[in-house]
Design a protein around this nucleic acid. Structure first.
Lengths: 343, 343
DNA sequence: TTGTAGGCGTTATCAA
DNA sequence: TTGATAACGCCTACAA
């Protein structure tokens, strides 16, 4: 039974075929300067003997791993699993492999993940930052070694790291502007940790839109939480206690928006008539909740594809890291019933 | 600047400290027989010099990779991203790393993924089978090399491969039984590819429950599709054309169930009064759709944790593969409004 | 077109 | 407790 006892090496193949190991090595990697016939024989023998190349040896020799590392806050969100799926597709199509880890939203784990990635000798790294990450020194060892690190979605401005994200400011501006145009005057804004660009930018967009409509920003209307269903339900309860009630809610993710809608509906609030609501992300649930949720569409799958492509281009073209610009992807406001007041 | 020029090796550290590379190696892995002081010095120097161990060399020498491979049909489903999150947690806590790839539901890609995993020398493999996989010969090379392969969720019965799954037969039986108890007499059953245990078993459960209630199985009431929202909407349209209308629908995932509910509601059907509906998986949308969806809860996160733990136990205890039994995880029927008829 | 030979960085064995 | 040495399997100048 081939391969059942010990691993076959190129030397075993060489011996059997009375050629040198070098020739076997060349043949197996389609090196141009090797006789067609010899190559055919070698490939055939390799298959018969159950040979598999030893990537450790090869990597050791060549000093690269063909592995792309990914660090994300959580794997199990609708958005992030789309991103990962997109990354995987591109990475796989380019004969790279993927090592994935999650920071579980803590900087501590993010640091330890980064260390692991470094020791695993990833050729490049894709990162979306944890909720509470305050610095990115833990990625410096990569830069020193010229291993490209690319941030996506939850990014940090820094010359060494190319970034891929959407224009969160603009998207949030559009959402808020839309709500205002629907007649909202007092819009509660539920938002996340202001350390992260995605959240800070959205708050900025909210403020800016208010200003454009000559409405004073009211700190009391901003609720910062972790955007989970649980904390958002609590936020909705708090909103119910407000007097007067707000007439709009803009919350920066859909999990949170759905949770709010559920609480408010149960309390007898009419949506969008009494309170218009908009979210962010266009999760599948946005089209399931009633009324359907107005939100920002922002395709994770595409972001994953683009991020992976950019990184791999780097790697194969040996471009200098600095040369790559940041990339801003398109997002779009999708207006649905949760914010559509009849004229 | 440490580490900025060339990679530091144990020889560099050895030279600087006037000890041998062997001692450095031992010190860095906490080998017991090395002087406390020497160790301290070595560890300190390593940090200062920006040393990182070369996993290629180490793996080559030790003949294992500390990498666990995962092959799943798709990464971006609610269930699967939970599974992956669970796997990642356990794998990471045990100082293994994770290589992930998706078969995109085709056997062809599954085979090529398996090859890549083999060449990457994973220490173990976790697999959930693609929609149309008919054989599992592509995993035999792992078995020959005593690399454990463990199937989860979408499994195949085979002595060489331990399996983790839920009792799909029982779960489906309970769902059907519940619908029957609610007074349903004609239950449409929407199901997936019967090649896969998860789907075949659920059909079996459906049939068995009918039989227990002395209701004849009617082939006409079974719709086989890919369980996507799109095909399920089409199925719902077909159901609307049935004469007489069925009074129940049991579909084997929640995406499908939600899609059906949306179509039926739009057509003016009262749920659950006219048609009671149940799904499978307990996706987040199950609690968002109105009426809330009766479904089978079946925690992916836990399945991921258990699968990874089992595999890693194998690896660390060097147990024989055959000794591990299959594991059946708990699942539970969750009755919600979509199937609750007032008595 | 093919072969020779050295080295990638680590660890295990043996000896000191 | 430490050191010398020989693999691990592959790749790539360089030579033939």
């Amino acid at each position: 039974m081939p391969g059942s006892e010990k691993e076959i090496t190129i030397y075993d193949i060489a011996e059997k075929l009375k050629v040198s190991a070098a020739t076997v090595s060349r043949a197996l990697k389609d090196h141009p300067r090797v006789n067609k016939n010899t190559k055919k024989k070698i490939v055939k023998a390799a298959a018969e003997m159950g040979y598999r190349s030893n990537s450790f040896a090869s990597n050791l020799r060549r000093k690269n791993s063909n592995i792309i590392g990914v660090i994300v806050p959580r794997l199990n969100s609708s958005f992030m699993s789309d991103v990962i799926a997109g990354i995987e597709k591109v990475v796989n199509n380019n004969n790279y492999n993927l090592i994935i880890s999650q920071s579980l939203e803590t900087m501590k784990k993010e640091i330890s993940n980064a260390k692991a990635m470094l020791n695993n000798r990833v050729d490049g790294l894709l990162v979306s930052l944890a909720y509470d990450t305050t610095g990115i020194e833990h990625f410096e060892p990569f830069i020193k070694r010229k291993i490209p690190v690319l941030f996506f979605d939850r990014i940090i401005e820094h010359a060494h790291y190319p970034q891929i994200y959407i224009d969160n400011f603009k998207a949030a501006y559009e959402v808020t502007d839309h709500l205002l145009q629907q007649g909202c005057k007092r819009i509660v804004h539920i938002n996340g940790n202001q350390l992260r660009n995605v959240y800070a930018e959205r708050l900025r967009g909210y403020k800016q839109a208010l200003e454009a409509h000559h409405i004073d920003f009211d700190e009391q209307l901003v609720i910062i939480n972790d955007l989970s269903a649980k904390e958002s339900a609590a936020a909705a309860e708090a909103i119910l206690q407000m007097n007067p009630l707000p007439d709009g809610i803009f919350t920066v993710n859909d999990v949170s928006a759905v949770s709010c809608i559920q609480v408010l509906k149960k309390a007898g609030i009419k949506i969008p008539e009494q309170i218009a609501i908009a979210g962010f992300n266009n999760d599948p649930a946005a089209c399931v909740i009633e009324p359907n949720l107005t939100t920002v569409n922002y395709k994770g799958y595409e972001m994953g594809e683009v991020a992976a492509s950019m990184l791999i281009n780097h790697l194969t073209n040996r471009q200098d890291l600095q040369q790559t610009h940041s990339l801003i992807l398109r997002s779009e406001l999708i207006v649905r019933e949760s914010s559509s007041r009849k004229k």
